[in-house]
Amino acid sequence: MAYSVEPLSGDNAHQWETFNHHSREGTLFHSLRWKKILEDIFGFNLRYYLIQNEQKIIGICPFVERIRGYFRGLEDIPHSNFNDVILDDSFNISDINDLLSLFSQKCSYLRFNVSNADILERITYSNFSGEETGNMVLDLKQTPPDTIQQTLSKNTLKRIRRFEKEGFRIQEITRRSDIGQFYQYYAKNMAHIRGKILPLSFFEMLWDFFAPNELRIVILTKEDVCAGGTLALVDPARKIVHHEYLALNRNLPHYTPTYYLDWDLIDWAWANGYEMVSLGRQKLDPDNPRFRDKAKFGAEHIPIHSRLVIFSKKVSPLYRLKRTLSRSS
């Protein structure tokens, strides 16, 4: 097989978009609109590559360049729930080392995700498994809202219905200038859980690139009281809704707005003909309350198969030492 790797450029951008659009693994997060947002808002040094086999595009690889001391690496793109290397069905997984050899000329190490775990078992380069995480995905074809409702406990249903009984309503944000109300409670919630607060400009750019047909932002309100809200990316072509960002009013301690907001998004997706709802990334940890809440609404954990491949002989012992020290601490 004559594999080659071609950097993304203005001349082949249409090939990237076409491959992403037609691939069953393609997502909005692989689109060049998403790439533009990551570059403009965060200033990431992104390196996107098309994989060719005898001039036919058989894969796309979105990476961010990282410099670690004297070593240059390529890693999976951040702030993206789906950031796999995508390969079509014609790729022979036994050729993975031939493909990796092309990247060995470009970097000291490569960190990437794939959907097919069997690919990783064929790697002969020095490699290490990555963080055990995954996406919590609800298949509405198998588990429609009526089925979910029957499995929810009486206490959970009571907490959901409480909002409507007390006069709370879902309000969809239809103007860019109103994003600030959602962002106010998003930022406060992230500060509360000590998470990374993304800038308002990021959410405004999401609006510019995806509204109105591929973006849904809602807040749960009663008069001048906001209980919280959600931002979801909507993919009509693939019939999937991505729950991306949560806003919460932490001054309402006796309410559980996350239940109502998750249920609202699921119900909306079903009513509008969507087949899948991704509730975001999560480690496989049944003891984690957020994991349990997502599983409660029918979401299944779809693992992300991650691997760090080291090409440089100097990097490998350094990384092994780092892992040893990290485990001992």
Rank of each mutant, 00 (worst) to 15 (best):
E223C: 05
V234W: 06
L87H: 07
F91E: 09
L32P: 03
L140F: 08
E223S: 13
P236D: 08
L215Y: 01
L252Q: 07
I67G: 06
I179W: 00
E164M: 08
G180Q: 10
D235C: 06
Q171V: 13
T124I: 10
R327L: 13
I41Q: 10
F42A: 05
R72N: 11
S329F: 11
R47M: 06
Y125K: 05
L152N: 05
W263S: 02
H30L: 07
T18Y: 09
K141P: 06
V277D: 03
G167E: 09
L110S: 05
L233E: 01
H79W: 08
L99D: 03
L248M: 12
T133W: 02
I60L: 13
N127F: 01
L152I: 09
K36H: 11
W270M: 09
E223P: 05
G10K: 12
I266E: 02
L252T: 05
I57N: 08
E132L: 13
F103R: 04
T156M: 04
R307G: 02
Y319C: 04
R159Y: 11
D98T: 12
N135H: 00
E6S: 11
N116C: 07
F297W: 01
E172A: 08
G280F: 01
L261F: 07
I60Y: 06
L100C: 06
Q55P: 02
D98C: 11
L99H: 04
E121C: 08
L120N: 11
W268T: 01
I173Y: 00
N113I: 10
N81Q: 14
K313S: 15
H192K: 15
I77F: 04
G280M: 00
R216Q: 07
Y185Q: 00
T27G: 02
K141D: 13
Y48W: 15
W270K: 11
G273H: 08
W207G: 02
Q15K: 15
L157R: 15
I37D: 01
S153N: 07
A237M: 12
N83R: 14
E17N: 10
E65I: 09
K296W: 00
Y48T: 08
N53K: 14
E75T: 13
I123P: 01
F291Y: 15
Y109F: 15
R194I: 07
M205Q: 15
Y48F: 15
F182Y: 05
P286M: 02
K222F: 03
Y319K: 04
K154C: 05
M205F: 04
L321Q: 07
Q171Y: 11
A237Q: 13
E132F: 09
D40F: 04
S278G: 06
C226F: 01
Y255E: 03
G130N: 05
